[in-house]
């Protein structure tokens, strides 16, 4: 892997650069997209639907919302782009010998970096205003690590399957849009009816969002048991991603 560190850096840089190549606003788009989402969801869920924010550490809906969106940006984007990573680089995979798993690492890492720019800006604003819960910083760091292993694990799995079955991307789009609303991102977990609370508890993404919010917003941290579930799910995703990718990657060049 050391041997391929430079390659990984090239791939990540390539990915970040290519995204805005040829556009007038260039890198500014990295900020326009999340702000636009933030505006839409704030109007709909706070302005129109009047989502209550009791006990969430902040009265500001955009602040509450953005902390959750940051997690989703890296996860959702990393997953959908990571899934396509091998197929999109078919010309590389079928012509050169190199570990194709690095392609998935590169785009998921790029998605994470992309989101962390927004996270950085948000963090600075929060520090300036006050309201960052520093004791929750370790939880946040753990969240980022677990989130990345979850993302890259599932992305490896799906990227390998996608080479053989092009339905994967379609299904993923459907599943992602469902997960987005099943995770308490645009609403606080407290408003979910009692009989559906277990879904929130089992959804590792809701734990991730809670860890993000605990640090950035100062909302109550998730239960340790939930963090444990998240850790187990992330580890399983990572292992199964590696196993499946290894088994199938030898056949990629024949299929692409």
């Amino acid at each position: 892997m050391i041997r391929y560190r430079f390659l990984l850096r090239e791939l990540v840089l390539r990915d970040l650069k290519i995204r805005y190549a040829g556009s007038l606003l260039g890198f500014l788009w990295a900020f326009v997209h999340p702000l636009w989402q933030l505006a839409i969801y704030s109007v709909v869920f706070s302005g129109i639907l009047r989502t209550p924010l009791e006990g969430q550490g902040t009265k500001s809906f955009p602040v509450f919302l953005f902390a959750g969106l940051l997690m989703w940006m890296a996860f959702g984007e990393g997953l959908s782009r990571g899934t396509a990573a091998v197929v999109e680089s078919a010309n590389l995979v079928s012509k050169l010998r190199f570990p194709s798993s690095i392609l998935v690492v590169a785009v998921t890492l790029s998605a994470l970096l992309h989101a962390s720019i927004a996270t950085g800006v948000f963090l600075i604003m929060r520090i300036a205003i006050g309201g960052v819960a520093w004791p929750a910083l370790p939880g946040f760091v753990i969240a980022v690590v677990l989130q990345y292993s979850l993302t890259v694990g599932v992305a490896w799995l799906l990227a390998a399957l996608y080479v053989f079955l092009r339905d994967v991307q379609q299904v993923l789009t459907l599943v992602l849009s469902a997960i987005f609303y099943l995770t308490p991102i645009v609403y606080p977990p407290a408003i979910v009816p009692k009989r559906f609370q277990w879904i929130i508890g089992l959804n590792p993404l809701s734990t991730l969002v809670a860890l993000y919010r605990a640090f950035l917003v100062g909302s109550p941290p998730p239960a340790w048991s939930a963090v444990l579930v998240l850790a187990v799910v992330s580890a399983l995703a990572l292992v199964s991603g590696i196993v499946v990718f290894r088994r199938l990657s030898g056949l990629f060049a024949d299929e692409l």
Partner: peptide, 8 residues
């Protein structure tokens, strides 16, 4: 052709 990225 070879392993080139067209946009690069």
């Amino acid at each position: 052709g070879s392993g080139f990225h067209p946009h690069f």
